[in-house]
Structures are given as C-alpha cells and as structure tokens.
Simulated assay, not measured.
Amino acid sequence: MSTATAPASSTAHADALRALEARYGTPWSAPLPAWNETLDSLLAHRSVRNYADRPLPEGTLETLIAAAQSASTSSNLQTWSVVAIEDPERKARLAALAANQSQVREAPLFLVWLADLSRLEAAGQRTDTSIEGLHYLETLVVGMIDAALAAQNAVVALESLGMSAVYIGAIRNRPEQVAAELGLPPRVMPVFGMCVGYPDETRPAAIKPRLPQPVVLHREQYNVPSQVGEIAQYDEVTRAFQTSQGQSAAGWTARSLARWRSAESLHGRDRLRDALNALGFELR
C-alpha cells in the first residue's frame, strides 16, 4: 500500500516546493500529486565529505547491508559483495590509493562495493557445471549494476537514520592494489567506495542542482532539440552554485568536459581493461 499523500497543508506544500527548487536551482512549476517523508529524504541527498568524530550505533552496518540486499538484483544472481573497513590504517592505505581523499580516512566506516562473479564460478566448479557465460562482458555489467543498486539502497537507508555518505569512484584508480589490500579472489572487481558517518554540522554540505528534467526525461522518443538551451540555462545555475560554494564558476559543461579531456584526466582508469584482465575477467 502506498504511503504517499498529497501535502496536507500550505506548510507541507511549501516544504515540497523548496525541496524541488533546491534540487534544480530553479522554480518548480509541475503539479505535486503526492508527497511524503521518503521524498523529503531523497531530495535532500547531498555528498558529504566532512564527518563528525562520532561512532556509529551498534548494528548500523548490518542494517545497511539488509537494506542493500533488499534492492533488485538481476535474476536473483546477487553478483555483488561489499568489504567494510573500520581499521584506521587500512582506511589510510585505501585513501592513498584513491587520490588521497581525506574523507576516506575520516569517515568511521568505509565500504568498498564489489562486482563479484567468484561465488558463481566456485559454485560451477563444485557442481562440475559449465560457466562459460561468466566470462562475457555482459556478466560483469550485471555485477556492476547489482552493486550500484545495492549501494544506493544503503545510502537511502543510512540517510533515513541521520547519517550521510559520499561515493568514491577513485577506488578504480588502482584496482589491482585495492584488490590486493582487500584480499579479493579472482573475478571480483572493486566498483566504488563509500564513506559513511554522521555529517560534521560545522561544515555542512549543500544540495547540488541537477540537470533540468527536459534534458534527462524523454517522452516516447529521445528529444535532441531541447538539450542545448536547457543545458545553457543549467550552466548558469551551476555557476551560481559554484560561486556560492567558493569554487571557480566553470559551469557544468566546461567542468564535465574537463573530466574527459585526455587519458590522463582519467587518473589511471584509462587502463581499466588491463586491470580487469589482471583481476581475472576475460571480457569476451
């Protein structure tokens, strides 16, 4: 049964509008057919890189994993795993492998989410069953999607409990070294990391505006003509946000394209195919 309800008062309606306008950085004009606390939590998401020196309650990790395992998974294959790291020295080593990001060291809990084909391979070997399909790119993609769905469920859960998180894609900068640090068996890939903790209220994170809906929402068929003007408007919104955060006002287009300017811009991830081969993925 749905728990969604239309805003019951002008105050609730105003709160919903503020949440939507913060997410896009522009006025919201579409109707609000329903609203609830889940939507409040989802639209309030922000990447938090500063954490309070506060331990997580006992049972937090297990609760987050239960939420993660409640996510959809292709054909119930469950081709993901996660390694939880709380040891300060191991977090420091992983931070060094992930572009020296201080939040990896500072967060009380660091999770490394994995595309994991090793379980199915072992099951095939135990039962003398052909596992040729495991060696194709499609199966690795399934594992990566499974890991992402599970991780986002965990984020929704932890934010509902007053905690915050930030994804660490730089865990893929040096995947072989991360695999060695975590003792990963062959055919297991570190997809991304995630810092988890209580936000440092003295250094609050802001809600970053997203692309306008006409850029990402296409009805019936992909709509190319709407892109240019909407993205130009979004560049203005992004520049204003960047200025408010004390950043250079580069806009979304320039900053995004800079990420793909050259192989060096990938910070080691340009050799991901070689790294995957080293980790035991044949990628037929």
Rank of each mutant, 00 (worst) to 15 (best):
T73E: 04
N76Q: 12
L77P: 00
T79V: 08
W80P: 01
W80Q: 00
S81G: 15
S81C: 06
S81N: 12
V83W: 00
A84Q: 04
I85A: 10
I85L: 13
D87T: 02
E89W: 05
R90T: 15
R90N: 07
R93P: 01
L94R: 02
A95K: 01
A98C: 11
A99S: 04
N100G: 07
Q101P: 00
Q101M: 04
S102L: 03
S102A: 09
Q103I: 01
Q103Y: 10
F110H: 03
L111F: 06
L111D: 01
V112M: 03
W113E: 05
W113R: 03
L114Y: 02
D116H: 02
L117E: 01
S118A: 15
R119N: 04
L120I: 06
E121V: 08
A122I: 04
A123S: 13
G124M: 01
G124W: 01
Q125L: 11
R126K: 12
R126I: 08
T127Q: 14
T127L: 14
D128N: 12
T129S: 14
T129D: 07
I131H: 04
E132A: 15
G133K: 07
H135Y: 14
Y136H: 15
Y136M: 08
E138L: 12
E138N: 10
T139E: 14
T139C: 12
T139L: 10
L140I: 07
L140G: 10
V141Q: 12
V141S: 10
M144C: 15
M144P: 00
I145K: 15
A148G: 15
L149W: 05
L149S: 06
A151E: 12
Q152P: 06
N153Q: 14
N153K: 08
N153S: 15
V155F: 10
L158H: 01
L158C: 14
L161R: 14
L161I: 07
G162T: 08
G162C: 08
M163F: 11
S164L: 03
A165Y: 05
V166E: 03
Y167S: 13
I168D: 06
G169P: 02
I171S: 09
R172I: 06
N173R: 08
R174M: 10
P175E: 08
P175D: 09
Q177F: 02
Q177L: 13
Q177T: 09
V178L: 09
V178Y: 02
A179F: 09
A180S: 14
A180E: 15
E181Q: 11
G183D: 08
L184H: 02
G193Q: 07
G193K: 04
M194F: 06
G197N: 09
Y198R: 08
P199C: 05
P199G: 09
P199F: 04
E201V: 11
T202P: 02
P204V: 13
A206T: 09
A206P: 01
A206D: 12
